[in-house]
Amino acid sequence: MARFLTSTALGSILAAMARGTNAWCGLLLLVFGSAGCGGNPSEGEDSFRVALLLAGPENDEGWNQSAFEGLRRIREELSAETRKITARTRAEIELAMERAAAEGFDLVIGHGVEFNAPACKIADAYPDCSFVTTGGPESRSNVCSLVLRLEEAAYQLGVLAGQLSESGIVSAISGMEFEPVRRVVAGFRHGLLSVAPEAKVLEEYLGSWEDSSLAKETAVAHAERGADVFFQNADAAGVGVFEACRSRSHYAFGCNRDQSPKAPDVILASAVADIPESLLFLASEVKNGTFAGGIRSFGIAEGKVRVGWNEALAGDLSSTVRDKTDAIADQIRRGDIDPATP
């Protein structure tokens, strides 16, 4: 048994310790232990604490970054103590949410539809904590599912693409095939078909939110097939699409945020979901005690979704094209158009 123990890595550690030859272990303990004497000042009981849970990196130029923006605004404008936590798997998500609730966070934001079911599960056990998830069909009295109807702005961009495309072939490259992503692409497609019924959309789901070279090669392949307007919903990978457009002087659209600063020579307009504003709005409700659960849907009518124009490029457009695109917003607001139906 002893021989077995020493033949394994673990055994070696134990054996070495038993032999007492580690002043180094002691050194480490000393170093870390003494450093621990100055602690962090304990958080005040009455500070407003908000935790944001993301399933991806917060610098992805798209989906997650917009939520991180919202967290920053909450921190600054509501004087909140914030934490950003990355949680990818169902297990990680549940544990992170539970930890946030157990440690006394006032608001836990789960950014994405994958956070919805876990949030409801945890919320039942922690009724004093408020939860917000961006998307998802379930809700509770202390869970709000924030649905942003980005497909409305995508519809507008589809209308724009239909007017701009000369070949009648348009590209729509997305990261992964989630329902919210598919809904946005569907909105784009319906908008396109409403002005150009013969047009074709080349849809592709990369299977990754960060493989920018694959996104670029896909865009190139689409361009080779005749696509001359490019819609993307691929977060960090989307930069590949912008690069492909740049070398061919095609227009591209941003998504989730106003991405014009990222590629000002290529991005004509973006489908913007004002996630930061929406999150700030809900957080202030929590702080004021007026938070209510349920499904809250925000779109053009509520002023939280819009098309963000890149004025530098949009100035080249004819006024009819721009006006027609902008007019769609009013039609959607009035309920005359439903982006979900063809």
């Binding site: 077995f4 890595a9 673990l10 055994g11 798997t89 297990a91 994958e114 992964m176």
Partner: peptide, 30 residues
């Protein structure tokens, strides 16, 4: 754990397991 299946099931446990197996010198008990 997940009581369901989505794309987050694959998180690299299968690859990390190789390192674990070798670190344990391929002894099942270790």
């Amino acid at each position: 754990v997940s009581h369901g299946l989505d794309t987050s099931i694959a998180q690299g446990a299968g690859y990390a397991a190789i390192a674990v197996a070798l670190a344990a010198r391929l002894h099942p008990l270790a």
